[in-house]
Simulated scan of single mutants.
Amino acid sequence: MFSRILTLIIKELEMLLQDRQSRMILIVPVLLQLAVFPFAATLEVKNNTLAIYNEDSGREPTELMQRFSQAQAFTRLLMLYGEAEMRYAIDNQQALIVIRFPPDFSRDIAAGRSPKIQAILDGRRSNSGQIAFGYVQQIVNDYGNERLESRQKNVPSFLVVRHWFNPNLDYTWHVLPSLTAIITSINALIVTALSVAREREQGTLDQLLISPLTPGMIMIGKIIPAILVAVVQGTIILLGAVFAYRVPFEGSLLLLYGSMILYCLALAGFGLLISSVCATQQQAFLGVFSFMMPAVLLSGYASPIDNMPSWLQYLDWINPMRHFIVIVKGLFLKDIGPVVLLHSLYPLLIIAIATLGAANWLFRKRLA
């Protein structure tokens, strides 16, 4: 039995690696995403324009503008001289935020009153605007605290913030562990989803069925090559993250690869379900795309799962990417142990058993 399965595995790997172009397709996209993804898929706000409308001739607005110009979020300050220019700058996306200093700004500070600053954000870029506004607010608060320290002898204590697991809030520490999950998902799904559909489309599925291979053996022979390819690609992302981008890996490699194999089994179940339903490779590819987009969006990579409606959080439990992203981030940054991992591993095991069982039943039914 094992020799028959091994023969099918070798045959599947030969199909995937049969020529130079096939091998390049498996490796080059991973390297390109490793090179581009950490810089493109980021929620950081940098190199934007901050517009200033200053109606105050005092020293304080000038000091704040100098601080704004030193922030990484704003590489250019655009000076405005009227409300019409403010409206034009936002309407034509010349600036992400417009800051307006009223005429009595410096006078209020000198009198000990709380001054007011108007901030106008571009609602078409709401996420970037809110993040950039947070930078502006932090600069203004720091300036206010410094002035308070210079005036008072008994300075009140202020909140000191430390960021555990990511002290410098480096966004690549968030992107690259998540990229490990996304890359392995894409390839594990595509390889398994196209495998049976390819055999059916090329007319070789009947040859497999009259061979000594049972439907269960055929499924195993389709799953293992997909897992091997996904693990190799996940290893490439792991090495690039640690050695090229200096993302710390604090956890256990054994736990990482064990979790990755279980994750690939859960994905292979979905892939075989798609492949069993679809008659052609084109249909299978569209099925993979239809599964991947919601899986990535609901995985917690782009937005927190806690922000989703309760019913969607329960529905998202069947999304294997949601659980594996928690695992890979924990192993990269936290060095979580096997006991903590169980909370994310047992859903992957349940998903794998359910999807592989359903795929096996559907595969046998369609063959019958």
Rank of each mutant, 00 (worst) to 15 (best):
G58P: 14
D56A: 15
L50N: 15
Q94Y: 09
A40V: 07
V45P: 04
K46G: 07
T42R: 07
T42N: 04
G112A: 03
G112E: 08
G82F: 07
A40L: 01
R87A: 08
E63P: 02
L80T: 02
T62V: 07
T62D: 15
E44W: 07
F39M: 03
M79N: 08
A51Q: 15
F74A: 12
Q66H: 05
T49S: 13
Q72M: 13
L50H: 14
L64N: 06
F101W: 00
E83C: 00
N54K: 09
T49C: 15
Q70N: 02
A51C: 15
F101T: 02
L96A: 10
T49Y: 12
D104S: 07
Y88P: 00
T49Q: 09
A40G: 00
P102K: 13
P61I: 01
D108K: 01
M65C: 00
V98T: 14
V45C: 01
G58Q: 11
D108E: 00
F39I: 03
P38E: 01
N54T: 11
R113A: 09
M65S: 01
A41L: 06
A89K: 07
P115K: 10
M86I: 11
L50P: 13
A40M: 03
R100I: 14
N92M: 00
A71T: 04
P38T: 04
D56K: 13
A110M: 08
I99V: 09
A84E: 08
F105K: 02
A110K: 10
R107P: 03
D56H: 14
I52Y: 00
A73V: 01
T75G: 07
A111I: 03
Q93R: 14
F68C: 06
N47H: 15
A110F: 13
R67Y: 03
L50S: 12
T42H: 05
V98H: 11
I99L: 05
D104K: 07
L43S: 03
D104T: 09
R76W: 05
P103D: 15
R100G: 05
F105R: 00
F68S: 11
R100W: 05
Q94T: 11
L78T: 08
I52D: 04
I52P: 05
R67W: 04
